[in-house]
Design a protein around this nucleic acid. Structure first.
Length: 549
RNA sequence: GAGCCCCUAGCUCAGCUGGCUAGAGCACCUCACUUUUAAUGAGGGGGUCCAGGGUUCGAGCCCCUGGGGGCUCACCA
């Protein structure tokens, strides 16, 4: 490239101003002395990137600011027009005489003195019709010949003002009278196309690229927005339901000195001023119970939880749970409430009165009441084996007969859990409450009011997977201390997931806690169910990724 | 963690048994075209074939090592 071209001048200016003003540079991690300084600047631009930068410069030379500061007064969304257009007997559009829209240019079909383009806004796409003599009415045709045809690139944000009409082929379109640049795109977007039969060509589908560059994914695959809209509607509906129950939304610490309330490996960090180790929470349960102890009758929190464990299509290191705790209730009440909550939420997500969700081959109905089955009854029903009162040796024999793999370290509780998980869980497609778990697996749960060796706990299983976990909360501080001590023993034997003893929580319990029902519902898993997504990465905007090379 | 598969242009992909200057469609550039719609027609540019070693007269292709990714299975929600 010769010097002195607009591009070259622009490029030189940029270099003089300091490197390429992207936030990459400012927020780059400080260089580690022992390693080479990472080179964040991609000085090698592709032809298409160079062209776009040249176009940017040329726009400025023509007095057109590609990144204007002023607000742009949008009057309509694309879908408002597509769904609201009215025509008379001759097929002429009778409304939308003046509309102003803004969005990205996603395609251009130029035919000499006229052109069609597609504008994509947050609601969808609408076709634009641009004719030379309309946007360049005088002698000077620069606005059309140069600005529209040459300097406008796919992906640019523009605003248009015009009127609505239908083309010969009947497509509702905006006849553009005025075009405003709102934000130039300097990189070419992937260009998926769809034909009349709905076949998509050149789809942008590499999961890694889609997740790393979710902004591109959302732009070129706008359908995926629907998953995230459903996620948002779900959370809104759940919040509304919990508010209507007179529960209070609260926030509790993410940074915790002791990672309690669940069995999982934590992320460890360090607080400099206090000079103490800290953990990102693996649960918020113990804090919510402290609030019940403090006198709130009902609290809930939509909580980001962090667990330092494997990553796969159902596990992300950070995920979202809603937990709520209600005083003077028990797990039976919580089952009733959970049915109502999910029924309400699923209707909101579906957008109608339907409580049915199609999941794979099955229609799953979230309308209550759900089947309630004790763990022992479930195992009896699905395997014919009776685990009631079985000791450890008998359980091993049962596991053997059912071909459930077990190992020597497993105690009674773990054996029952394995038998259930291997033989029953996957078969429970419709929402089912499995109740009354072995005490060994549930250190925070109240002992069963009538069944020896069990606790008042339920899990909600849907489509063969756990969706929620709830208890009558253990409020006897002496029992709680014993349970923690059993966990400490497990920890000493090498169980990395054993729960830590939280002395302050025990102190709180000793001041007295009302009987309380509590539950945690995995939001990401629920969204996966309700949107038919098979991987958690598809229901998180920004799933955790390995660092980009 | 185990097994299988993949990495070639901005995107989606071909590339035979190792053999001339590595290809296609879309995107991009130039030209034509005033109701197109995967617009069309003509012409053009664009590549660290993931990286590094090896075998070979010759490697996108074979071998080794490393990196990245996907899928399936097992465990944590």
């Amino acid at each position: 490239m010769g010097s002195g071209t607009p591009w070259e001048l622009f490029y030189t200016k940029l270099r003089r101003a300091g490197p390429y003003r992207t936030s990459d540079v400012r927020h780059a991690p400080p260089a580690v002395p022992s390693r080479p300084i990472p080179q964040p600047l991609r000085m090698q631009l592709t032809d298409q990137e160079k062209t776009r930068r040249e176009n940017l410069t040329k726009l400025r030379e023509l007095g057109i600011e590609p990144f204007p500061a002023a607000l742009f007064p949008v009057s309509h969304l694309a879908t408002d027009i597509l769904s609201g257009v009215e025509t008379d007997a001759e097929g002429n559009v009778t409304n939308f005489k003046e509309v102003t829209l803004a969005g990205r240019i996603m395609s251009q079909r130029i035919m000499g003195k006229a052109a069609f383009a597609n504008l994509q806004d947050s609601s969808g796409r609408i076709q634009l019709y641009v004719s030379r003599d309309d946007i360049a009415p005088g002698e000077d045709k620069t606005m059309y010949n140069t600005v529209f045809k040459k300097l406008l690139d796919l992906g640019d944000f523009i605003g248009v003002k015009g009127f609505v009409f239908k083309t010969k082929t009947g497509e509702t379109s905006v006849h553009v009278k005025e075009l405003t640049f709102l934000g130039k795109s300097l990189r070419p977007l992937p260009t998926p196309k769809r034909d009349d039969e709905g076949h998509v060509y050149d789809e942008f589908k590499d999961p890694e690229l889609r997740h790393r560059m979710r902004y591109v994914d959302l732009t070129v695959n706008p359908k995926i927005k629907e998953t995230f809209r459903k996620r948002s509607r779900l959370i809104t509906a759940m919040r509304q339901f919990l508010d209507d129950l007179d529960l209070m939304e609260v926030e509790t610490p993410v940074l915790q000195p002791i990672h309690g309330g669940a069995a999982a490996r934590p992320f460890k960090t360090h607080h400099n001023t206090l000079d103490v180790p800290m953990y990102l929470r693996i649960a918020n349960e113990l804090y919510l119970k402290r609030l019940i102890i403090g006198g709130f009758d009902g609290v809930y929190e939509f909580a980001k939880i962090f667990r330092n464990e494997g990553m796969d299509r159902t596990h992300n290191p950070e995920f979202t749970m809603v937990e709520f705790y209600v005083a003077y209730k028990d797990y039976n009440w919580m089952m009733d409430t959970t049915e109502q909550l999910l029924e309400h939420a699923v209707k909101a997500v579906n957008g109608d009165a339907s409580t049915v969700v199609r999941i794979g081959e099955n229609d799953v109905d979230f309308g209550g009441p759900y089947r309630r089955l004790s763990m022992a009854d479930a195992i009896r029903e699905y395997t014919g084996e009776n685990i009631d009162g079985a000791d450890e040796d008998e359980l091993r024999a049962i596991a053997g007969r059912l071909h459930v793999p077990v190992d020597k370290t497993m105690g009674r509780g773990k054996l029952i859990d394995e038998i259930f998980g291997e033989t029953v869980e996957a078969k429970l497609i419709q929402p089912t409450f499995i109740t009354d778990y072995p005490v060994e697996m549930s250190p925070l749960t109240k002992k069963h009011r009538s069944k020896e060796g069990l606790v008042e706990r339920f899990e909600l299983i849907v489509n063969g997977k756990e969706l929620a976990n709830a208890y009558s909360e253990l409020n006897d501080p002496i029992d709680q201390r014993e349970r923690f001590e059993e966990q400490l023993e497990l920890g000493k034997r090498g169980d990395e997931e054993a729960m830590a003893l939280d002395e302050d929580f025990l102190r709180a319990l000793e001041y007295g806690m009302p009987p309380t029902a509590g539950i945690g519902i995995g939001i990401d898993r629920l969204v996966m169910l309700l949107t038919g997504q098979k991987s958690i990465q598809e229901v998180l905007f920004f799933p955790q990724m390995k660092p980009e090379k």
